[in-house]
Nucleic acid binder design. Structure first.
Length: 862
RNA sequence: GGGGGUGUGGUGGAACUGGUAGACACGCUGGACUCAAAAUCCAGUGGCAGCGAUGCCUUGCGAGUUCGAGUCUCGCCACCCCUACCA
């Protein structure tokens, strides 16, 4: 065997195998009904310009799954593309005068090259960019189908307006009253907007979560909370001196007898009307508007209200009138914008009642309590009782437990025609209109005569104009001199195009389906989606737990109902990876410093390289440009190679936990790869030819290595199946150590060495594919691992003849004994009791009991 | 306020359904090789006591269940994340 060059040449090796895979077309997927399919997908990137470490982790995780599944014989689809519409492109246009399309295209080209250096097993022939009219034309068509089926509609509504981005934000994009991207306080405006009727699927989206058993519980819970189903009732309170009544939603109809007031939102129509001739009320409403949704307003959260002077009649109690207050804590967006207050059993109502001197009427008491004294105490308390109990002071509800009382109260309301049982959702319809240029044009035309007219199918796609001026503010599409002027498709008179574009979550809600047939003339070829969908393993950041993942689940159902495809759930398996973190550094003036601008000079000291000024080290946080604690993946791949970067991403930290980037860590990965290479090209024995069968006799050391290899094959396979990549790496390193410790002079050592090294190459191939191919080739194989099969452990080698059994006295370890596997209990007990070390602890005490767990433990109780 | 999660050596983390805690790695210490360094290889490395075989202690803290608890139950403490006036 040649032992010429022991140095591992990363650059050459990685480039060579990447070219070889591409030349052989190893990763191009085609429908094959005779094989089981497996669709692996990582959340596609926004082409911001450069990839970051989060991308590297994401794609590494996905690639390990893809390569492992492929080796297992699955027909694997593993595509990549670009979430290419969005604000940063437009901001670049405004700031630097570069056209969004040009900016985006060049970013895609740069990032594609960066991603290619990672050696991912992607089918690049399926690449899509959502800003291509070839992509977005299909969603325009889809939108028109949604429109025809009532799944899309237009209405005037209050919107969250981001004053920095000059655009409307979805509720999900407002975080603590601020725009999720700009961080600017959101304002409220009233605009005519397009909506998708996601609420129609509220129940199905909620119920569907139950079936997603390969999703993290955390994400399912977040979606369930977001959908926010609550059971309750609508109650009508007749307004004294008016013809109509006040509609209220409540989840506690059982506490109606404890009602002492009603409260309505400052935006409630009744409030608006009453404010017209009530200056104090009008002033209060104005004050509420001023505070708006700002964070500070919510923080202080003082419950304030104004008595309108109007009263309503209690539905069950003749003669009891309740005052109607306008209160700042009642939201117009939820329920009916009006509530009834039962201070005894709702803390918020209690706070309000104590502030404004409203009565507190206990109507629920704990099951075991003396209801009289409990009620007396509660009526003077300021802590509401919101727990379960039994109804008191409530006429026909007395004695009923809360659950039954709710039912009985609803039944009575329905009999009286004063209300009905109902279910409320927190989920709102998805506003998709954005007043921006760089997005998919909404394919409708506004005609003064005909109203909103869909763009005829033959005229699709509605393409974005290219000659656009970005210097002004607001929507450049709207300011374009000619683009929006078109004849009405129905009457032919002058009309204008819709100048809003879709929210970019629109594009990402169906791209996984487009990958199935990315070049089809229709959105997707039915037989292709039927074969590939749903995605078997989806991988990405937990930050998309609600937005993107919920929209995609909705969209898939909407597409299903429009006949596009046959499934309802897009992703049967979801994995949310942890973030990449790094220490943060600040210079003397408090300014952030990059990791490559500082140097660690001692255990506690870090200095700035430029001037040796002391640096303050902050805790490890998510890598972010603003804190400058970023490490550029390209620099790492350039100096250590893709395999080392991939290996480090997979080692140590479980993939769902945050990963601390460290130079020592990447160094360790690099050293391990070199060790593997040395062991491959410079074995301590001459290796037998490829395919040599196992010798009949083998020395103990060789035999132990063969067994260890089989055990490793079994363990790594199991770990990869469960996405426990960190332990898979540990198992491989363990086997590597065992190979290094082999006594090369023993009988069968050469075979054992070859077998272990070949197995190692195959086992690490999904994780570090380049060096695995190089090892495989150096070991004399000519078929690439990328198209090779996954190794299978021989069960005969997974069990040893003997096993080490722990011996305890009263549960404390006192020694071990070597026993034959599945030894008789009596044998085990005798062997344990014969141990000198055990005798020393037992002494002359009586053995009261001996617990024997076969192959594990003998516990002597004295 | 509500919901969820985490807590194991100097560090990242292992430990299947309760069964030899600390796998694997980083770091550190000593040694070999070298003129020297790097790389590599070998040995050691939870704490305390002891020359030593060994002993005692140890999975945030405190109880409990059990022959046996990192793992199960109850009560605390700390940190992190999500969510938030949702009636």
């Amino acid at each position: 065997m040649a032992r010429t060059d022991e140095r591992y040449n990363v650059k050459e090796t990685e480039a060579r195998w990447q070219a070889a895979w591409e030349a052989a077309g190893c990763f191009a997927a085609t429908v094959d009904p005779t094989r089981p399919k497996y669709y692996v997908l990582e959340m596609f990137p926004y082409p911001s310009g450069r990839i970051h470490m989060g991308h590297v982790r994401n794609y590494t995780l996905g690639d390990v799954v893809a390569r492992h599944k492929r080796a297992q014989g699955f027909n694997v689809l593993h595509p990549m593309g670009w979430d290419a519409f969005g604000l940063p492109a437009e901001n670049a246009a405004i700031e630097r005068g570069v056209h969004p399309a040009v900016w985006t295209r060049s970013n895609i080209a740069a990032m594609r090259e960066q991603i290619r250096t990672m050696g991912l097993s992607l089918d690049w022939s399926r690449e899509v960019a959502t800003c291509d009219s070839d992509y977005y034309r299909h969603e325009q068509r889809m939108f028109l189908d949604f429109l025809a089926r009532g799944l899309a509609y237009r209405r005037e509504s209050w919107v969250n307006w981001d004053p920095v981005e000059h655009t409307v934000l979805a509720n999900e994009q407002v975080i603590d009253g601020r725009g999720w991207r700009s961080g600017a306080p959101v304002e409220r405006r009233r605009l005519s907007q397009w909506f998708l009727r996601i609420t129609k699927y509220a129940e199905e989206l909620l119920a569907g979560l139950e079936t997603l058993d390969r999703w993290p519980d955390k994400v399912r819970l977040m979606q369930a909370n977001w959908i926010g189903r609550s059971e309750g009732a609508y109650v009508s309170f007749a307004i004294n001196g008016a013809a109509e009544s006040l509609e209220v939603f409540t989840t506690r109809p059982d506490t109606l007898f404890g009602a002492s007031f009603c409260a309505i939102s400052p935006h409630h129509p009744l409030a608006t009307r009453l404010a017209a001739d009530n200056p104090a009320l009008a002033a209060f409403i104005a004050e509420c508007d001023r505070l708006g949704t700002s964070e500070a307003a919510i923080e202080t959260a003082e419950k304030k209200g104004v008595d309108t002077g109007t009263t309503v009649r209690h539905p069950f109690i003749a003669g009891r009138d309740l005052p109607v207050h306008v209160a700042n804590f009642v939201l117009m967006e939820y329920g009916t914008g009006a509530i009834f207050g039962c201070p005894a059993h709702d803390q918020r109502d209690m706070d309000f009642a104590r502030r404004y001197g409203l009565p507190v009427r206990p109507v629920v008491a704990p099951r075991d309590a003396d209801s009289g004294s409990f009620a007396a105490a509660l009526s003077t308390s300021s802590i509401a009782f919101a727990e379960d109990g039994v109804l008191i002071n409530s006429d026909f509800l007395d004695g009923l437990p809360v659950v039954e009382a709710k039912r009985a109260a609803i039944a009575r309301l329905e009999t009286l025609g004063q209300g009905r049982g109902s279910i409320q959702y927190r989920l709102r319809d998805w506003g998709v209109s954005r007043q921006r240029y760089w997005g998919c044009p909404i394919p409708v035309i506004h005609c003064e005569t005909c109203g909103v007219v869909p763009v005829p199918e033959a005229e699709l796609p509605v393409r974005l104009p290219e000659d656009v001026d970005f210097t002004g503010s607001g929507n450049p599409l709207d300011r374009h001199p000619t683009w929006k002027n078109v004849p009405c498709p129905t009457c032919g008179r002058p009309a204008r195009r819709e100048t809003d574009t879709f929210d970019t979550f629109f594009e990402s809600s169906w791209y996984f389906a487009r990958y199935c047939s990315p070049h089809a003339d229709v959105a997707f070829d039915r037989s292709e989606v039927d074969y590939w969908l749903p995605v078997d393993q989806y991988i990405g950041g937990v930050e998309h737990a609600v937005l993107h993942l919920l929209y995609s689940r909705f969209f898939t159902r909407a597409m299903r109902d429009c006949g596009y495809l046959g499934v309802g759930e897009p992703f049967t398996g979801l994995f949310t990876q942890g973030m990449i973190c790094h220490e943060t550094y600040r210079g003397p003036a408090g300014e952030w410093l990059q990791p490559d601008q500082v140097e660690r000079t001692g255990p506690e000291t870090v200095e700035r390289l430029a001037d040796r000024a002391p640096v303050t080290v902050g805790r490890s946080e998510k890598m972010s440009k603003s804190k400058k604690n970023v490490v550029d993946p390209s620099l790492i791949i350039d100096s250590y190679g893709a395999d080392a970067a991939r290996l480090f991403m997979l080692s140590d930290s479980p993939p769902d936990r945050d990963l601390d980037w460290s130079d020592a860590g990447i160094d360790g990965a690099w050293r391990y790869l070199n060790r593997l290479w040395r062991m491959t090209v410079a074995p301590p024995v001459d290796l037998p030819p490829v395919g040599t069968p196992m010798p009949v006799a083998a020395a103990a050391g060789a035999m132990a290595l063969i067994r260890a290899t089989h055990r490793t094959i079994a363990a790594v396979g199991d770990d990869l199946e469960k996405l426990r990549f960190n332990t898979a790496v540990a198992r491989c390193r363990e086997l590597t150590n065992a190979v290094g410790a082999l006594d090369a002079s023993g009988e069968g050592a050469a075979f054992a060495y070859r077998f272990a090294m070949e197995s190692l190459a195959r086992l690490i191939a999904p994780m570090t594919p380049h060096i695995a191919e190089a090892m495989w080739e150096a070991l004399g194989h000519d078929r690439m691992l990328a198209v090779g099969a996954w190794p299978v452990a021989d069960p005969a080698f997974l069990v040893d003849d003997t096993v080490t059994v722990a011996v305890q006295v009263n549960g404390k370890l006192r020694g071990t004994v070597e026993l034959p596997v599945d030894a008789d209990q009596a044998v085990a007990q005798a062997a344990a009791l014969a141990l000198p070390a055990l005798q020393a602890h037992v002494g002359d005490k009586t053995v009261r009991k001996v617990v024997v767990v076969p192959n594990r433990i003998v516990n002597v109780v004295v």
